[in-house]
């Protein structure tokens, strides 16, 4: 199961070291999984040299093509590479643990104070920023898919999920299948002709 790659002269980190490094990243990186990627790179490629630069890019491409939480997928991948299954458990638990504890602490207080008029007013404002943040993320991603097909598929998804009310689970499966049928089989046909 353990795939040893990278520079073999570099000593592999202990399970505790893996756990603590990922816990540190989980505790201090704000803004979700994408914000963690440069931190992973700094720690594992540049600081300790456990993983080489090209391999890091490969891992990144792969974890983004899998479902799930990007930071966790990354942690599992690196853990497996360096220390097998135990490594994967150490890294994934490490990276998730700070969120888990912090959210439980916050949720405990949040539900006590949410009916307080001051807190309610503050959150009326905060909810507006949530719309602004998600809208901004959507616009950024939209700009990367500015071709005709992309715009059509995006509009179709919006219509199905928001206007028609189809379950997002099925829309995702449908769009993936659609992409496979249209794009992947096209590639094969072109290849056959050539």
């Amino acid at each position: 199961m353990i795939v040893v790659t990278g520079d073999d002269t570099v000593e592999k980190p202990s399970l505790l070291r893996l756990f603590l490094t990922f816990m540190k990243i989980g505790a201090f990186t704000f803004g979700g999984g994408y914000a963690m990627i440069p931190v992973f790179e700094r720690e594992f490629v540049k600081r300790y040299g456990y993983i080489e630069e090209d391999e890091f890019a490969n891992i990144l491409a792969m974890v983004q093509s899998l479902p799930g939480v990007i930071a966790i997928n990354f942690a599992v991948f690196i853990g497996l590479r360096l220390r097998g299954l135990k490594g994967a458990l150490a890294t994934s638990i490490g990276v998730a643990l700070p969120s888990f504890v912090i959210i439980i602490v916050i949720a405990t207080f949040f539900f006590q104070y949410i009916d307080n008029p001051v807190v309610a007013a503050i959150f009326s404002g905060v909810r507006i920023s949530v719309v602004a943040l998600i809208f901004t993320a959507g616009v950024k991603l939209f700009k990367q898919n500015l071709h005709l097909q992309g715009t059509f598929l995006a509009a179709l998804t919006f219509a199905l999920v928001f206007s028609v009310g189809v379950h997002p689970f099925f829309v995702i499966l449908m769009m993936g299948t659609f992409g496979y049928l249209i794009f992947a089989t096209n590639e094969v046909k072109k290849h056959d002709i050539a």
Binding site: S65, R127, V130, V131, I134, F135, A137, G138, L141, F142, Q144, N145, Q149, G150, T151, F152, L153, A154, A155, L156, T157, F158, A159, L160, V161, F162, P168, V171, I172, M175, G176, T177, F178, G179, Y180, L181, I182, F183, A184, T185, N186, E187, V188
Partner: peptide, 26 residues
């Protein structure tokens, strides 16, 4: 090529998903 094809369909779908979330939350 299979993974690549699936993602050509999924990526724009994600854009649609995000905007549907915006509309609903708004």
């Amino acid at each position: 090529k299979v993974v690549e094809g699936i993602f050509k369909g999924l990526r724009p779908a994600l854009v649609g998903m995000i905007f549907s979330s915006v509309a609903s939350i708004a």
